[in-house]
Simulated scan of single mutants.
Amino acid sequence: MAAARHGAFHRLTVAAVDRLTDDSVALTLSVPAELREVYRHAPGQHLTLRRSGPEGTEVRRTYSICTPAPAPDGPGPARLRVGVRLVEGGEFSTYAHKEIAAGDELDVMVPAGRFVLDPAAAPAGAHYAAVVGGSGVTPLLSIVASVLGARPDTRFCLIRSDRTAASTMFLDEVADLKDRYPERFQLVTVLSREEQEAGLPSGRLDRERLTALLPALLPVDAVAGWFLCGPFGLVQGAERALRELGVDRGRIHEEIFHVDGTPATAAPATGSVSASHSRVTARLDGRSGSWPVQDGESLLDAVLRNRADAPYACKGGVCGTCRAFLVRGEVRMDRNFALEEEETEAGFVLACQSHAVSEEVEIDFDR
């Protein structure tokens, strides 16, 4: 079967809607046999769900897949599951909580994302660890289950932070992993607003606390890979703690689920030209086109005016769905919470946050 196209959506049926907490649900999606190969996913990838908004607008939201990845030599997934936490004023999360029911159909983009762990690439006897907050546990369900299931020589330590026990998503699923792999799966739970009968004292997992806590839990320098996922503040604090503990940046992998406020945008580069005088050439699914960039427009919006199938989800520099390789030209990228340092150094940009600085810019979504 041909490879899945970037940004392609298919209609999938909702098999079940399970309430996890008062403010979160899990959606299980059925994948028909003819689409199972295009929905084959790596542990940690996500799905983008789409619904029509008012006056022909679209609402897109990205949610991590929490089901284990299929074996490379096995069939693609028959079902996919994602967790949706209710966000105040959130258009899609409110829709998921109040309207979506079993039997409904949803527009679902093919899996995407690079916050992944390939079990086949794990070194012999590898020890992995994760620090997650709230719904940031979702991709780790897939990562932990996949690597421990495929590689019986690996170990995983999951450190999760939640507000209260009642607000903790996927309690049963994490408990099942602990029962299934008691010797190889270490679970550490911290509640920020509620005391536990046993375990760590309550409080936020900030940089200072993690710097003291992590060496007491596991051999920090022996961990093959660290996976940080959740709100921006937690991920930033965990990264700083790990760097202070001497962890190489290449062993730290991050995915941001929420950014409070709007960081200041980057200043325009010296010598920048008017966007109205710029053109963007974009390659997508083997086809290239070249179009003018309108004043103040991002590269993604310029491409979308001419190619409605250009991949995107959040348009906020968080999900990384619009990642593209900068073939030539110069751009200014306002925000980046999705690409790792190695990716930006290699020439990748977020099209939704990139503005033309040179008169000619060429990007490649196929890289």
Rank of each mutant, 00 (worst) to 15 (best):
R11V: 04
T13V: 07
V14D: 09
V14F: 09
V14R: 06
A15N: 11
A15V: 13
A15C: 13
A16T: 14
A16K: 15
R19H: 08
R19K: 08
L20N: 00
T21F: 04
D22N: 06
D23P: 03
D23Q: 07
S24V: 09
S24Q: 03
V25L: 10
V25T: 11
V25F: 04
V25G: 03
A26R: 07
A26G: 06
A26C: 09
L27D: 02
L27E: 02
T28S: 13
T28H: 09
L29N: 02
S30H: 11
S30R: 13
S30D: 14
V31R: 00
V31T: 12
P32M: 12
A33C: 02
A33R: 15
A33I: 02
L35Y: 14
E37N: 12
E37Y: 08
V38N: 05
Y39R: 06
R40P: 04
R40E: 06
R40D: 06
H41E: 08
H41I: 11
P43T: 08
P43V: 05
P43A: 12
G44Q: 00
G44C: 03
L47F: 05
L47Y: 06
L49A: 07
R50M: 15
R50E: 15
S52Q: 12
G53E: 05
G53F: 01
V59D: 07
R60K: 11
S64H: 05
I65C: 04
C66T: 05
C66Q: 02
P68S: 06
P68Q: 07
P68K: 02
A69G: 05
A69T: 03
P70T: 08
G74I: 11
A78V: 14
A78N: 04
R79V: 13
R79K: 11
R79P: 05
R81Y: 10
R81Q: 15
R81T: 15
V82Y: 02
G83E: 03
E88A: 15
E88T: 14
G89L: 12
S93E: 08
S93I: 11
S93R: 07
T94G: 09
T94Y: 05
Y95A: 04
A96H: 03
H97N: 09
K98N: 03
K98W: 00
K98F: 00
E99G: 00
A102E: 13
G103Q: 08
G103S: 11
D104R: 05
D104F: 09
E105C: 12
L106F: 11
M109S: 13
V110P: 00
P111Y: 03
P111H: 05
A112Q: 10
A112W: 01
G113I: 00
V116N: 00
L117Y: 01
D118P: 06
P119L: 15
A120R: 15
A120S: 14
A121Q: 15
A121D: 15
A122K: 10
P123L: 08
A126K: 07
A129T: 07
A130T: 12
V131H: 01
V132Y: 03
V132G: 01
G133R: 10
S135C: 14
G136S: 09
G136T: 08
V137A: 06
V137G: 00
T138Q: 04
T138G: 02
